[in-house]
Nucleic acid binder design. Structure first.
Lengths: 189, 189
DNA sequence: GTCTATACGGCGATAGAC
DNA sequence: GTCTATCGCCGTATAGAC
């Protein structure tokens, strides 16, 4: 148990550094030396925890997925589906400043991995699949069973587009405006 | 003149290859050797036309901008603003198959360069500025002067989000559905 | 202007002492 | 489990003959 805790401690530091650096400068640009330095772990020791760089990419995806799981649990505590949908939008708006600088944590990672090809590209669609499935559930609860999947896709799509525009123009307000539009849309459904 | 034509011939081949490769596999992943091979130009000779790799990135941006200029001229030939807006959406839909595989030619490039940092990141927002300005003009002509910029941003944003979703799920139909939604929206304005 | 050969640095990955 | 040293490759860029 002590051994596992220690091991998880260093591994976690590495993953945390990898997530942060990949978000700020991109996965491909981030070197193992960067990750080692940021996490205070000697370069050679990284390979005890991860056999390849792609294994770190996998761990990054896991973190992003677990972050969604945590958010989903928080949304579940809200009174109804409309509140959950609205809060999902609000969460993105609250993060607008980061998004305008580095892009959407899910979207920018997904876009990069998709271009990279390989196993990580294939796995990356799980990032959107989770939220979309959950949002479709909420639309169903709102009585839009037939078009629930479409509505959920539209919501995620709109947030991604707005995030890219906000990043491109380096203007958080762009994301806020599109977010407000989405909240009006949700309120009217 | 002959000299210029010859020079432009090889330069054009290099740029064409660079645009295609950067679209298919990403700018960063594309090496000068890749570009040299694809265009049939020896590696060492590339540096006669481009001092650095970033200079090629610049040329790629120029190509994308000139492609927008060509599209804008074609849209100008249409009878009215509503037709221009609708056709812009249709153009993306027509390219759905490529978008689902490689992403939006503008969006995926923009996203990658934005993460890369440096001069190319700064320059990349020109990709969206052109279309958005033009679309805002069309919305103004439709009598939405006050919110024209907002509407144009929304249109571009929606297309970008839909493109990313289509790429992520490798499904052109996703883009078609969101495109249809946008066309209905335009028709109702 | 063109092309071959190569320098130079950086990155992923490994060896092996401790 | 940890860490230093280093290998081997690849990518950008340059030298210099033609």
């Amino acid at each position: 148990m002590t051994k596992n805790t220690t091991k998880a401690g260093k591994r976690d530091k590495l993953v945390e550094a990898a997530v942060a650096l990949a978000y700020r400068q991109g996965y491909r640009k981030t070197t193992l030396a960067d990750i080692a330095e940021e996490s205070g772990v000697p370069l050679g020791n990284v390979y005890y925890y991860f056999k390849t760089k792609d294994a770190i990419g996998d761990a990054i995806l896991e973190v992003r997925e677990s972050q969604w799981a945590a958010l989903r649990d928080r949304l579940a505590a809200l009174p109804g589906p409309r509140e959950r949908l609205t809060d999902y939008v609000d969460m993105t708006i609250r993060n607008a400043s980061n998004v305008a600088t580095y892009g959407c944590p899910m979207g920018s990672l997904s876009a990069e991995l998709l271009k990279g090809g390989g196993d990580l590209a294939t796995r990356s669609n799980a990032l959107f699949a989770g939220p979309i499935d959950y949002m479709a559930e909420q639309f169903r609860a709102l009585g839009h069973a037939a078009e629930a999947e479409d509505l959920a896709l539209h919501l995620q799509s709109a947030l991604q587009g707005a995030s890219l525009m906000a990043q491109s123009f380096r203007d958080p307000d762009v994301l806020k405006r599109e977010g407000d539009r989405l909240k009006v849309w949700i309120a009217g459904l």
